[in-house]
């Protein structure tokens, strides 16, 4: 039962990035500022800076995700690190090897950083606890718990378009219950001083007592979007669509899909975000996804810069 957050050193420096919960406003602002210079790296002819030269970054993906893994890989390579991709979901654990046995093997290969995705909430905490000291762990998504780099890139995007957080209304829409993106986003927004965070969805997809995280809960989407500056849509996983949580994707879209009509309730200059990959026609109407208010592609671009900033920060570069 530690008294300080396991991602911080005793003097409050970031040694891992495991969750937004437990970071101060200053930590988050520093990471966002650190991302600024990296945005332009992608526009250069030589898209590399030497900050992580000679370092080995292991992408440990216990759950498949080509997109997220690729953005981490690009970020690490732009920092001149050596990147090793391990799709563990398909190998060791399938053979019955335990998570810690797998980890012990990888530690023996002298990794400097692990980027971890796992289907169990909290798995990166276990890895951070058992990793050798000096090895940084970055959570690339654990179960329903956290996706801190996604939240940081979302904050970077909001800051880019809206400049500050102190007068914003932000709505997060869809499957809040199963969403690590929503949880990390809520923590980031409330920590940065956003005064009005709303979650919108049917009761089956809203976590118990979620208001304790500092958000208001709405079940009527049109009313929930009223006067919003930012609309963050979430991906609805296929397996949720037909069962006891929701009757059908079609009916979900009818109540909670983002359409021009519903978006009209938000402020005229509201931005629309989505962590991808999108289900067009399920959570978002195609014309909106590709429309003027959509910032979905800039999110991807900023994502690489933000991940570069996180990697550089945890190794103290």
């Amino acid at each position: 039962m530690p008294t300080y957050h396991p991602q911080l050193t005793a003097d409050g420096q970031l040694k891992h990035l495991l969750s937004i919960d437990g970071l101060s406003r200053a930590h988050i602002e520093r990471l966002l500022e650190a991302a600024d210079p990296f945005v332009s790296v992608g526009d250069r002819e030589v898209k590399k800076v030497p900050l992580l030269r000679g370092k080995s970054v292991f992408n440990l993906f216990f759950e498949n995700s080509t997109r997220t893994r690729t953005t981490f890989e690009i970020a690490a390579k732009r920092l001149s690190a050596d990147v090793i991709n391990l799709n563990i979901g398909a190998s060791s654990t399938a053979k019955g090897e335990s998570l810690l046995d797998t980890l012990a093997n990888l530690v023996a290969m002298n990794a400097d950083m692990f980027v971890v995705r796992h289907s169990e909430s909290g798995a990166p905490f276990l890895i951070a606890q058992h990793a050798k000291s000096g090895v940084a762990v970055i959570n690339a998504g654990d179960g329903r718990h956290a996706h801190p780099t996604q939240a940081l890139l979302d904050m970077y995007t909001i800051r880019h378009y809206k400049k500050s957080f102190h007068n914003l209304s932000v709505a997060i829409v869809g499957d809040i219950l199963h969403s690590r993106v929503a949880r990390s986003g809520i923590h980031a927004l409330t920590t940065l001083g956003c005064p009005d965070v709303r979650v919108i969805g049917p009761k089956t997809l809203i976590p118990t007592d979620v208001h304790r995280m500092g958000v208001s809960v709405h079940h009527d989407m049109a009313r929930g979007l009223e006067g919003c500056d930012v609309v963050m849509m979430l991906r609805l996983q296929n397996e949720r669509m037909n069962g006891a949580l929701l009757p059908s994707a079609h009916e979900f879209f009818k109540s909670y899909g983002l359409t021009a009509q519903k978006l009209a309730r938000a402020k005229p200059n509201a931005i629309v975000m989505h962590p991808g990959p999108m289900n067009r026609g399920v959570e978002i109407d195609s014309p909106i996804a590709d429309g003027q208010q959509s910032v979905i592609l800039p999110q991807v671009t900023f994502g690489i810069a933000v991940r570069m900033a996180v990697m550089a920060s945890v190794v103290g570069a």
Binding site: D21, S121, G122, D142, G143, R144, H145, A146, R180, R183, P207, T208, D209, V210, R212, M213
Partner: peptide, 15 residues
Amino acid sequence: HDGEVASRLGLSGVP
């Protein structure tokens, strides 16, 4: 326990 802590930690709840 299905409550604030499970919601925060992303653990599925037993109501």
